[in-house]
Design a protein around this nucleic acid. Structure first.
Length: 817
DNA sequence: AAAATGTGTCATAAA
DNA sequence: TTTTTATGACACATT
């Protein structure tokens, strides 16, 4: 009975997850409390009804595992596997950082497009006052939708009184999901990002779920980069502000929506739980939401991935259904088709050329991880809490908190797999543990990185190539050749040989220590590999980059006189930028290094040529500039309040430079951009066109001067940095050369010593065999062997030999003189 | 709170 | 001479 219960609960978890995927809402309590057989039947038998037979068959044939009744979980498992293979494929393709970002961004539109087709779930949700948000869900407004959405939130938030943090969070996530699935966002990552940020804020850092928050940071960073790529700024995700506002906003909706959507115990239970947790601040809000956050996210990510890679017709239904999980009326007709779409990716997954063993290991790592997290969080609730509530709570929670809780839904599902296995075949259960513990380290570097990311519950690691993970440039991909590897080896060899030499040959202590120092320094250099590779590799490209920079500098300076707009561009030649970006992307700079490069190689003038990007170049401003600009360009929907408008104005003001403020104050009729970047002639023409006061003129000239100087300073700093880096590289090269020369010297000394020893032994042998007329050996103290120039050997008295030796010693000195 | 870093500006020299 | 560029130095902001 106990096993049955366990099985039921676990299966129930899987099942609910699956159902949540499908978009069917089922009251689990009824099954759990009263009707066990039906539940079992649902889990075991009819699962085939939700899945397409062909996929099962295919899977079975490929995997070698028989069709398990609990195919739902297997579905999750295979979905995960497919995702894994996708991630691996990413890794394999060595997609550069920027490209991967683009990939994500492009993937979203697909999901949004597909999601925008069936907006049923959204329609349901919008009934509770979300129409503003979900109304423009045809992808027409795209990012604007999002903006309007957030602004709506802000607007509402200004009015709504704060209630329970958990409730708000939950509502927020639901809202976000609505915007996700049906909103037709080109960039669903933005709300996701902000929500994640919110999640991070809401979570107590000390709670067990804080692990997820760390990943969230990574994910946020990645997503943020996407957004930056698309022109959005981090400001969009200003957690501390937005989160609170949204929280409050959600409150508003929560009141109505929750009552609307969840009638019955589930809702009550949820509310109860949430409230209690929110007040007490117990483990639940951090743990369970955290865990389920991950789950939901990963599932959603799964869906998106699936959509991206398997643009089947049915896939179009995913987002909407996912979005409508909580609100959708359970419809029996839907699931099969949906299941079909759900499973279709599995086909491709099984088709993936990757090693089954490896995938299995990957999966095992996930399962292990899940076993830790889910068992401690979700299962706790499942098992320890009263029978009815927890399940319903879980059920309602998972679908309702898609974003923040996204992270672990995936794990939960995967974990469900492991649990399933354990249920059915203990030997299989053993496998994961053994594999994950023992085999993982042995897995090739690719999968190791993957596994590590998995085991660290790193969502970013789950869905992005390792290079992307958080610091992105932190670690060069395993495929990337370590330019310092050879050096390191060399240095180590050097050191070894040196020590060897010093020990064996009784090397001159001073010299030996010197050499040791040398090698130490050298090896220290190499040990600083985290730093060296970048500079080294950069040096490879940097010879070109430096040359290009020098050439471009001269060229630009010459060209600038003739064509000042180009001259304004100055050092920031495209080629150089590309070079360095390539180097950066390929080699994987150190974080600070990449920071350097980003800072230094951003083309300020180019940016300034694009007004909307003008402030991206400056770290101060680009945090808030894009959002401000966005909001400026796309005035929020009618619901905007004065407060937020003021905020917008503030943002605008903040984003504007001092000179821009001054120009505005002086009512200067053209843009600072023109003032600064126009060639002198055109600039003068422009001035002549207007009747400008003396103050205005002087301000304009100051603006021009300052603007040009600003760019000049940027170029100067960039150049300075280039110089420093080049010098650094040169120093490294020289140190390498020095080490090499020293090594060669040591080698020569060693061989010389060996030769001397050999000669000495030969000498003694020959001398020992010499006999005088009387057959007696010559005394070494009285005679010596003298090597003649022609190769002959003479036996001469010691005295003569000493004299000759002295002469020979003097001769070189004389020559020198 | 202090240090490190980034950025804008000014003064000045040079082209 | 005027304009532009380069650069050191400083102040301020951000991290």
């Amino acid at each position: 009975m106990l096993s049955l219960k366990k099985y039921l609960t676990e299966g129930l978890l899987q099942f609910t997850i699956l159902l949540s995927l499908i978009g069917v809402r089922v009251d689990v309590d009824t099954y759990l409390t009263s009707q066990l057989p039906p539940l079992r039947e649902i889990i075991l038998g009819p699962s085939s009804a939700y899945t397409q037979t062909q996929f099962h068959n295919l899977r079975n044939t490929l995997d070698g595992y028989g069709i398990h009744p609990k195919s739902i979980d297997l579905d999750n498992y295979f979905t995960a596997r497919r995702l894994l293979s996708q991630v691996r494929a990413l890794d394999r393709f060595q997609v550069p950082t920027t490209e991967v970002n683009a990939w994500l961004v492009h993937r979203d539109p697909e999901g949004s497009v597909s999601g925008s087709q069936p907006s049923s779930g959204l329609a349901l949700e919008s009934s509770s006052g979300l129409q503003d948000v979900t109304g423009p869900d045809n992808g027409v407004r795209e990012s604007e939708t999002e903006q309007g959405f957030s602004e709506d939130l802000e607007d509402l938030g200004a009015v709504a009184p704060p209630v329970s943090g958990d409730l708000t969070k939950e509502t927020m996530t639901r809202l976000d999901r609505s915007s996700h699935g049906g909103g037709g966002h080109v960039k669903s990552s933005r709300p996701l990002n902000s929500l994640l940020a919110g999640h991070r804020v809401a979570q107590p850092p000390s709670a067990p779920g804080s692990r997820a928050s760390v990943q969230d940071i990574d994910l946020i960073d990645i997503l943020w980069r996407q957004d930056i790529d698309l022109g959005a700024g981090r400001e969009v995700f200003d957690y501390s502000h937005r989160q609170k506002e949204q929280d409050v906003d959600k409150e508003l909706r929560d009141g109505g929506e929750q009552a609307d959507t969840w009638a019955g115990e589930g809702a009550e239970a949820l509310a109860r739980d949430l409230l209690v947790d929110g007040e007490t601040g117990e483990s639940f809000p951090a743990q369970v939401p955290g865990g389920e956050d991950q789950t939901a996210l990963s599932l959603e990510e799964c869906l998106r991935l699936l959509e991206a890679t398997c643009p089947f017709g049915e896939n179009a239904e995913f987002p909407a259904n996912v979005a409508s999980i909580t609100e959708a009326v359970p419809s029996e007709s839907e699931p099969p088709a949906l299941q079909n779409s759900l499973l279709s990716p599995l086909l491709t997954g099984t088709e993936s050329p990757f090693d089954l063993e490896q995938q299995w290991q990957d999966l095992m790592s996930i399962m292990e991880m899940q076993a830790m997290e889910v068992n401690t969080s979700a299962s706790e609730i499942l098992y320890n809490a009263p029978p009815g509530d927890p399940l319903s709570t879980n059920y309602s929670l998972a679908p309702n908190t898609p974003i923040n809780q996204n992270v672990s839904l995936h794990q939960a599902s995967l974990g469900g797999c492991s649990q399933d296995f354990s249920l059915f075949s203990p030997e299989v259960e053993n496998l994961p543990v053994a594999n994950s513990s023992t085999l993982l380290p042995l897995v090739p570097s690719n999968s190791t990185s993957l596994n590590s990311t998995f085991s660290s519950t790193n969502l970013a690691g789950l869905f992005f190539p390792p290079q992307l993970n958080g610091t992105a440039n932190d670690t060069a991909g395993p495929e990337l050749p370590d330019p310092l590897g050879g050096l390191l080896d060399e240095a180590m060899l050097d050191e070894i040989s040196l020590m060897d030499l010093a020990i064996e040959e009784g090397f001159n202590p001073v010299q030996a220590s010197q050499l040791e120092e040398e090698f130490d320094s050298d090896s220290g250099l190499s040990l600083d590999s985290s730093h060296s590779p970048s500079s080294l590799s950069s040096s490879e490209g940097s010879s070109s980059s430096s040359s290009s920079s020098s050439s471009s500098s001269s060229a630009s300076s010459s060209a600038s006189s003739s064509f000042s707009e180009e001259g304004a561009v100055g050092y920031s030649s495209d080629s150089e930028t590309v070079d360095l970006e390539e180097a950066e992307g390929a080699v994987g700079y150190q974080p600070e290094y990449s920071k350097f490069c980003r800072m230094s190689y951003q083309d300020p003038s180019q940016l300034s040529c694009l007004p909307y990007l003008e402030h991206v170049g400056h770290n101060h401003t680009y945090n808030m500039a894009p959002s401000a600009l966005d909001s400026a360009d796309l005035p929020p929907p009618s619901t905007l309040k004065k407060g937020s408008k003021e905020k917008q104005a503030d943002f605008l003001d903040k984003q504007m430079s001092r000179d821009e403020h001054r120009a505005r104050a002086m009512k200067i009729p053209f843009t600072n951009d023109k003032i600064i970047n126009l060639p002198v002639e055109e600039f003068n023409e422009l001035l002549s066109k207007y009747q400008l006061s003396e103050a205005q003129l002087s301000l304009i000239r100051d603006i021009r001067r300052r603007g040009k100087n600003k760019m000049a300073a940027q170029n100067c700093r960039k150049r300075k940095l280039d110089t420093i880096l080049n010098l650094e590289r040169d120093v490294e090269d020289l140190q390498r050369d020095k080490a090499r020369l020293l090594r060669e010297k040591v080698e020569f000394l060693r061989s010389l010593r060996q030769m001397k020893q050999k000669v000495q032994s030969l000498y003694q042998e020959v001398f020992g065999r010499l006999r005088d007329e009387n057959g007696r050996p010559y005394s070494p103290s009285q005679y010596a062997l003298q090597y003649a120039g022609d190769g002959s050997v003479l036996l001469i008295p010691r005295t003569m030999a000493d004299q000759q030796a002295r002469r020979q010693e003097r001769k070189p000195k004389d020559r020198r003189k």
